[in-house]
Computed example of a mutant assay.
Amino acid sequence: MIKGMTVVNAVASPEMFDKLQSLFLALGFEQGRGWDDGTGRGAAMLAPLGNLEFVTGKQPATPRLLIEVTELDAIHMAVEKWMLGSYRTEEIASLLTKPEPTHWNSRLFTVKLTTGASEELTLGFWQSENVLHGRPVAIEGDLSAAGMRFAVITTRWNTVITDRLLQGALDGLYRSGAARKDVEIVRVPGAWEIPSAARTLAESKRFDAIVTLGCLLRGETAHYEAIYNEVARGIGQSQQETGVPHAFGVLTCETLEQALDRAGLKAGNKGFEAATAAIEMVSIQKKIGQPQIAEGGR
């Protein structure tokens, strides 16, 4: 079984060796186990991903040593800052290029490291323009609710909050393509009753997902903790035992002001967030078991 891959790059002078090691450490590379046998030295720089690439025909004009990054502009600034400690300002302009587009769907900049002995070593730093490049293949949900059926449970207690949550949830479902006939709203007295209703609706097998909405405000007694713990446990247990996704949109806040903020006033609408989470989970369940196509190339 192949374990790893190491590319050995010979450096002509100890001065260049120290300069190269200093740059890589400044950029955050993890230092592996080095060696010094009296006749030479080695320094290992570890990266989470390595590639060995073979080319033929017309080759792109890139340095032999290419380093892929995710924040090219930030890396460019870090390299420039490091160079200010080793080179004169007027030298840097000729040694460090600006990030430029390439013909292989990426951006690239190069840096030349020099020594007093006129030795040069060129490094290339690049970032793919494909935002999915290098990402592991994963099953992810879409946000299209077309053809899906949802039950939305809300409470009559704290309706000044839960009505706002309900409005946000319905907005999320309808904006994502759910038909009004495929969304059923169920009102229960309070948060305590949500798990029971959720379980009944899930076991009916009429819905692809359940959206639970409610609001608990801390009072001056332990009632708040007791109710919240059982509500969260009950909703989670219903989801696990029925296999139907349950989106959790039950607010637990210290004050009414905090609840209003989370119901659309300042901090988004938790009902909308719960609805989109439900849509995504239904999509994921439908995709599980289907073959996924890996992305290739740069």
Score class of each variant (00 low, 15 high):
residue 74 A to W: 05
residue 47 A to H: 03
residue 153 I to K: 08
residue 188 V to Q: 05
residue 114 T to P: 14
residue 127 Q to W: 13
residue 94 S to Y: 14
residue 272 F to V: 05
residue 140 E to M: 12
residue 218 R to P: 10
residue 202 A to C: 09
residue 295 E to Y: 15
residue 111 V to G: 07
residue 275 A to T: 01
residue 243 G to R: 07
residue 149 R to N: 03
residue 82 W to T: 05
residue 34 G to A: 12
residue 98 K to Q: 06
residue 262 R to E: 08
residue 291 P to D: 01
residue 182 D to P: 15
residue 297 G to D: 03
residue 61 A to T: 05
residue 124 G to V: 14
residue 85 G to L: 15
residue 251 L to H: 11
residue 98 K to T: 06
residue 109 F to G: 01
residue 175 R to T: 14
residue 274 A to I: 11
residue 5 M to Q: 04
residue 57 G to W: 03
residue 239 Q to M: 15
residue 294 A to C: 09
residue 284 I to S: 05
residue 100 E to L: 06
residue 143 L to D: 10
residue 54 F to S: 08
residue 104 W to D: 03
residue 191 A to C: 11
residue 250 V to K: 03
residue 251 L to P: 15
residue 62 T to E: 01
residue 222 A to R: 05
residue 97 T to L: 15
residue 270 K to R: 10
residue 191 A to M: 12
residue 260 L to C: 04
residue 119 E to I: 14
residue 146 A to N: 01
residue 77 M to R: 12
residue 73 D to R: 09
residue 259 A to H: 08
residue 276 T to L: 05
residue 76 H to G: 00
residue 85 G to M: 10
residue 139 I to S: 03
residue 146 A to D: 00
residue 32 G to Y: 12
residue 187 R to W: 14
residue 63 P to Y: 02
residue 143 L to M: 11
residue 10 A to Q: 12
residue 33 R to H: 13
residue 131 V to L: 09
residue 28 G to D: 00
residue 269 N to A: 12
residue 83 M to I: 07
residue 275 A to S: 06
residue 42 G to L: 04
residue 133 H to Y: 13
residue 266 K to E: 04
residue 284 I to G: 03
residue 12 A to C: 02
residue 176 S to N: 02
residue 283 S to R: 02
residue 89 T to K: 10
residue 242 T to C: 04
residue 238 S to D: 00
residue 211 V to G: 08
residue 286 K to N: 07
residue 41 R to T: 08
residue 109 F to V: 06
residue 234 G to D: 09
residue 171 D to L: 06
residue 227 I to Q: 02
residue 159 T to V: 10
residue 154 T to Y: 10
residue 296 G to N: 12
residue 289 G to A: 02
residue 238 S to K: 01
residue 126 W to N: 11
residue 283 S to E: 01
residue 214 G to Y: 09
residue 221 T to F: 13
residue 58 K to L: 11
residue 94 S to T: 14
residue 15 E to C: 04
residue 175 R to A: 15
residue 5 M to I: 15
residue 163 D to M: 02
residue 37 D to L: 02
residue 126 W to K: 11
residue 196 S to C: 10
residue 14 P to N: 03
residue 60 P to V: 07
residue 135 R to C: 08
residue 168 G to E: 00
residue 61 A to D: 12
residue 25 L to H: 01
residue 44 A to K: 02
residue 275 A to W: 02
residue 45 M to F: 15
residue 215 C to G: 05
residue 19 K to M: 08
